[in-house]
Amino acid sequence: MLNTINTPKYIIKLISAQESYQVRHPVLRPGRAFETCIFDGDTLETTFHFGIFLNNQLLGICSLFKNEHKNLSDAHQYQLRGMAVLAEQQGKGLGKLVLNYAESFIKAKGITTIWCNAREVATKFYTNLGYEIFGEPFEIEKIGTHYAMYKPLQ
């Protein structure tokens, strides 16, 4: 599978963990220490980071981690983390584009389920892309209410 996709306007490609921080920090950890946007496992060989670009400017990112959720029975799971689009670029479909690409990428590697801990405000975004909530809502300190969500990759 190609590691880059060109849409009519945007380029989506694999990026480094370090590149993802320039979007992850201001969107997901505003006003907090930079280190809070660095996740355990960011630099593992099994972790993939994707970016969507316009004119060489990174506008949105998502990261996929080899991680199994204890309440999902599928043995071939990946966790979506760090899904973020710069505030001024939100609402243009960029998140959907980069996430669809990331899902196709891991599906081609034999992964059959993707899951995430979605912020309450993002559940509609994920539901519209075929994700389903499972379990009860839970709190993540200093971030807020989250829902576990998953999607079979078929």
Rank of each mutant, 00 (worst) to 15 (best):
L153C: 10
G95S: 06
A122C: 09
K109E: 14
C116M: 13
A87M: 06
E120Y: 09
G51T: 11
L59K: 08
F134L: 03
K96T: 14
Q77S: 11
F138Q: 07
L59N: 07
S73W: 00
T4I: 15
T123S: 08
Y147F: 15
Q18W: 09
L54G: 00
G41D: 07
L129H: 09
E132D: 13
D40L: 11
R24S: 07
M149Y: 03
A75T: 12
K9Y: 04
A84D: 05
R32L: 14
T112R: 15
T46R: 10
G41P: 04
M83V: 09
K124C: 01
Q79A: 14
I133M: 10
I111R: 03
E19Y: 01
T112N: 15
G82Y: 07
L28Q: 07
D74M: 04
F34K: 14
Q90E: 10
L59F: 10
I15Y: 07
I106D: 06
K66A: 14
Q90S: 04
V85R: 03
G41W: 03
I133Y: 09
V98N: 08
V27A: 09
G60M: 08
Q57V: 14
C62K: 00
N128S: 11
K92Q: 15
E19F: 01
R24E: 05
F138M: 08
F53I: 02
R32Y: 11
Q79M: 14
T112F: 10
G130N: 11
Y147L: 07
F53G: 02
G31Q: 04
K9D: 07
Q79F: 04
L28H: 05
G130R: 10
Y101N: 05
K124D: 12
K124P: 00
Q22E: 14
R29M: 08
M1T: 06
K92R: 13
N55C: 04
L2V: 00
T7N: 04
A148V: 04
L64I: 12
R119D: 12
T36P: 00
F39A: 07
S73T: 08
E35V: 12
Y131M: 05
Q90K: 06
G95Q: 08
G41N: 07
G41Y: 04
I111F: 14
E136P: 00
D40E: 15
G31L: 05
F48V: 00
M1K: 07
D42P: 03
F50E: 11
A108Q: 15
P137A: 13
T7M: 06
S16C: 04
P137Q: 13
K13L: 01
S73E: 08
T113P: 00
C37Q: 05
P8R: 14
I38T: 01
F39R: 03
I5M: 13
Y10Q: 05
S16Q: 03
T4K: 14
L44T: 01
A122K: 11
T46N: 11
S20R: 04
E103A: 04
T127D: 12
L64G: 03
V98Q: 07
F50P: 05
K66N: 13
Q90H: 06
L58G: 09
H76Q: 15
K13P: 00
L2G: 00
F125V: 01
A84G: 09
